[in-house]
Design a protein around this nucleic acid. Structure first.
Lengths: 154, 154
DNA sequence: AGTAGTGGGTTGGATTATCCAACCCAGCAG
DNA sequence: CTGCTGGGTTGGATAATCCAACCCACTACT
């Protein structure tokens, strides 16, 4: 996975934490308030053994927190940490894209501004504030090795 | 997968298309202008057989387009479609989260605009066109069940 | 002509991951 | 004392991934 020639990138790092199967669906449920194991298993449709593994790794990664909510009998629930809540834009971006390009029919969910119009996530330039097309951007590697995407690397 | 009790959701639908291993990294490269098979394989670090499979499914899903760029010898490259370009917010959201919560030290790579400034993710109002602060938005679920969720439980 | 290199993949075999149903255990409730 | 709930674990089958090696059509070097 961590091949020496592979691009070093926070997208890949993020996916290493939440990119496995079911992880983002688990996050979706937890952010919706479905905190208990059985509820998560039912709502995601994932098998219980994998979900148990995912929940464990997400807790270890600091994305979720496992909390005892009943002493007798012992019962646990999963809460989002700050890092977990910070994944909301990722889920929102996926939802918007799925609404538009995958889901048949009208978007089941709409994100709207307080003025009533629809909201969308967009990549904007920090300086111009303008929306950015795909050809107008590039990844720049900091810290010595500048690996521009347009030129051939080595 | 398509369990009858699982939540119907565009997040899950989106992940069914681009949620497999390497898919989003392939998209990252293509959006950066790395269009050729060998370049994608080198930059992502994925094995060539899986990347060939991913590229095929992404083309079938309408996210990429396979185009002949040389007749003799026959050479192909992969271009993002409109749906592919629309995934940029997903990648940017993942990168921002990875920068903040996974990657140690400063961001190894920065996505920058052609003007030199950094790109970042923003919620923009379709009517106003203005950036939107937290608290001014809400999710509306159409089609019967209105599951209104607070924008940020902080 | 022979050799090496490039681009875009396939193939085979080993290793992991995922799926699914069944099971376990503790604490209740009838 | 039987069954139900919550939160998992176990075993075995199936699918996905990894890795190195190979293939083919062409071009470039010697």
């Amino acid at each position: 996975m961590t091949s020496s020639s592979a691009r070093e990138c926070s997208i890949a790092n993020a996916l290493a934490v939440v990119g496995e199967r079911w992880s983002l669906l688990v996050l979706r449920e937890v952010l919706l308030g479905n905190l208990r194991f059985d509820a998560i298993a039912a709502a995601t449709g994932g098998s219980r053994d994998i979900l148990a593994t995912r929940l464990r790794t997400l807790v270890e990664a600091g994305v979720l927190e496992r909390r005892l909510y009943s002493e007798q009998p012992q019962r646990y629930e999963y809460l989002p940490t700050q890092a977990g809540r910070a994944l909301q834009p990722v889920l929102l971006a996926l939802m918007e894209w799925g609404d538009r390009y995958v889901t048949q029919g009208p978007p089941p969910t709409v994100w709207e501004h307080s003025c009533g119009a629809e909201l969308h996530l967009a990549a904007v330039c920090a300086a111009c504030g303008a929306p950015v097309g795909s050809g107008e951007s590039r990844l720049v590697r900091l810290g010595g090795v500048d690996r521009s995407s347009r030129s051939e690397p080595e």
